[in-house]
């Protein structure tokens, strides 16, 4: 088992006073809190910091830890750690149950005190909730789809300690019209309760997978359609993809690049009715030119006498 240097985890000196430790914890908690942080491994880092704080904020636990730390540095301070035979923490009242899920190192040092202090299993407690990100394809949101999902569920014993993980598989109905970030609650599918208490819930957080063709804005879809300069100039009837089958769309003559055409009712289903599809025109140049085509462009340049930057020179 790895020896945890709680002082290093909080970035404080071993002689640091309580106020310094508290400030260090608060600062790191804000930095790594999984609800706030975008950093990779934020949750794991937050757990380490919370564990260090759990020990160092409590004078008795800190004294126990300091004693072990001193013993360890006398022995060279390297290699795996084992609690000394007959190790008994001196106590340190009040174990915060929110700390479940701490490291083996923490458990080997302080779990004796907790169980002794509690004198038996904890009273019944509702199982823990679990939150999972669920990637969903745009196509899956058009109609109600059933998706098989599987996720890891932490298992706790009667003391609320983490004892392992199980994998759970479910078929979930994704309601039509779900949007990015929406949460779906699966009642009673979370971790088992303690005693007679009910199991926790699972919350699925919908994450729309970016689509190669369509962008989403509320319940509207946007598709960027490349058109040739002459299609934009003369107008054209072109085929445009939708989430169902492709449709024919008329491009009016003299369309600018960036023009948006609205196709009613071809967006995503939503609470306030079906969204729309917006066709965004993007005028693109043909890839290569020949002498003949260049001559035609030159003719056009002469005839059109068009200055696209006329506004700049005003």
């Amino acid at each position: 088992m790895e020896f945890k240097d709680y002082y290093a985890l909080l970035g404080v000196e071993p002689e640091a006073d309580e106020a310094t430790i508290k400030t260090a914890y608060r600062r790191l908690a804000r930095k790594y809190h999984p609800d706030i942080s975008q950093e990779k491994d934020a949750e794991a880092k937050f757990k380490e910091v919370a564990e260090a704080w759990q020990v160092l904020k409590d004078p008795d636990k800190r004294a126990d830890y300091d004693q072990l730390r001193a013993m360890r540095s006398q022995q060279g301070g390297r290699g795996p750690f084992e609690a000394p035979p007959g190790w008994q923490p001196s106590g340190g009242g009040g174990f915060d149950p929110s700390g479940a899920g701490f490291s083996d190192f923490f458990e080997s040092l302080f779990s004796g005190a907790r169980q002794g202090g509690r004198g038996g299993p904890a009273p019944g407690r509702r199982g823990r909730d679990v939150e999972i990100d669920l990637p969903v394809f745009l196509e899956d949101t058009v109609s109600s789809e059933t998706k098989p999902i599987s996720f890891r569920l932490p298992e706790y014993n009667q003391y609320g300690e983490l004892i392992g993980e199980t994998t759970k598989s479910l078929n979930v109905k994704i309601p039509a019209g779900v949007s990015d970030g929406e949460r779906i609650r699966l009642k009673g599918q979370g971790s088992a309760g303690v005693g007679d208490m009910p199991a926790g819930d699972v919350y699925l957080r919908i994450r729309l997978v970016p689509h190669p063709l369509f962008d989403v804005e509320g319940h509207n879809l946007i598709v960027t359609v490349p058109v040739a300069p002459w299609e934009a100039a003369l107008g054209a009837k072109i085929e445009v993809p939708t989430l169902a089958s492709p449709i024919k769309v008329s491009i009016p003559a003299n369309s600018q690049s960036g023009k948006k055409l609205r196709i009613a009712g071809k967006g995503l289903p939503g609470k306030a009715g079906q969204g729309d599809l917006f066709v965004l025109l993007k005028v693109v140049m043909p890839p290569a030119s020949s002498d003949e085509i260049n001559q035609l462009w030159e003719q056009l340049a002469e005839k059109a006498s068009f200055d696209p930057r006329a506004q700049w020179s005003r």
Binding site: R26, D35, A50, S98
Partner: peptide, 28 residues
């Protein structure tokens, strides 16, 4: 409603783990 319960759960967790008062939690 469910959204409010989720919000309360989140607020309680943040309050405990960040040691910020309720006004701070509301703002956060």
């Amino acid at each position: 409603d469910e959204a409010a319960v989720a919000q309360i759960t989140r607020a309680v967790r943040l309050r405990r783990e960040l040691q910020v008062d309720w006004a701070g939690i509301a703002l956060a």
